[in-house]
Simulated assay, not measured.
Amino acid sequence: MNVITAPSKIVLDKNISVFLAGSIEIGVAERWQDKVIKDLSETNVTILNPRRASWDASWKQEISNPIFKEQVNWELEALEKAEMIVMYFDINTKSPITLLELGLFARSGKLIVCCPDGFWRKGNVAIVCERYRVQQVDSLEELIHEVKREIR
């Protein structure tokens, strides 16, 4: 396993590359990315993890902020390069960026989405997934299971 974390340079190897898209609100969302990484640690996969260790919530989220712009561009590049995108919607969050990413990549054929009951826009997510034939699962455990199945 190889883990590439924002904002490190994205250099992919022979492993299948998986982008971890989903709820990331600090202090609200569970650290689901850590569980995925732990559970996939014995596999031949390259994880593209946008959770930046040095994130500062006080940064202005504006195009004029070079650190913020670097983060967003890293995420877009990683989403585009990844062979698989796993998307997790935490029911305790609003996840507007994850919803945006769902819209951007729904037609890509690369998505597996986990949107548990209780997420405030589950209906919208389910309809988009159904319309564009995006695989949906109901739990983080199922999401990890499907990733393992796909990379075999």
Rank of each mutant, 00 (worst) to 15 (best):
S139R: 00
N2C: 06
V3C: 03
Q136W: 02
K94W: 11
R51H: 05
C129Q: 05
W74L: 11
H145G: 00
P96Q: 12
I97R: 15
S8A: 12
L76G: 01
G103F: 10
F19R: 04
K38T: 09
I85T: 03
S64D: 14
D34A: 13
A53G: 15
E75D: 15
K81I: 04
Q33K: 03
S95G: 14
T93H: 11
M1C: 02
N49H: 04
P7K: 07
D39K: 03
V128A: 08
I24Y: 05
Q71H: 14
Q61V: 06
I37R: 01
S139L: 10
F105C: 14
K14W: 04
L12A: 11
Y132H: 15
E146A: 08
K14R: 10
G22R: 03
P96Y: 06
E30I: 15
W55S: 12
N92V: 12
K14E: 03
K148Q: 07
V28M: 01
R131W: 02
I127V: 11
W55V: 11
E101A: 01
W59H: 08
N49C: 14
L20P: 08
N65I: 10
I4L: 06
S95M: 13
F68C: 11
N92F: 15
P50A: 07
L111S: 01
G118L: 12
Y132F: 15
I16L: 01
I63R: 05
A57F: 10
G123Y: 07
I97H: 09
K69I: 13
G123A: 14
F89N: 08
Y132K: 00
P66F: 06
F89H: 09
T5M: 08
S17P: 04
I127Y: 00
E150R: 02
P7N: 05
I63G: 12
E42Q: 13
T43L: 05
E80K: 08
S139T: 15
I67A: 09
D138W: 05
A106P: 03
V147M: 04
D39F: 02
V11R: 10
Q71G: 08
H145K: 10
M1I: 01
L143N: 00
G22C: 07
I47W: 00
P116S: 11
L79W: 02
W74Q: 04
V45A: 04
L111M: 12
I47V: 14
D13A: 08
V45I: 14
I4P: 06
F119Y: 15
I144V: 13
E130H: 11
E142R: 10
I91M: 07
V28W: 08
V45T: 10
R131F: 06
D56P: 09
K69W: 15
N44P: 11
Y88K: 05
G123I: 02
N65W: 07
E150D: 00
V147E: 03
A126F: 00
V128L: 08
P66S: 13
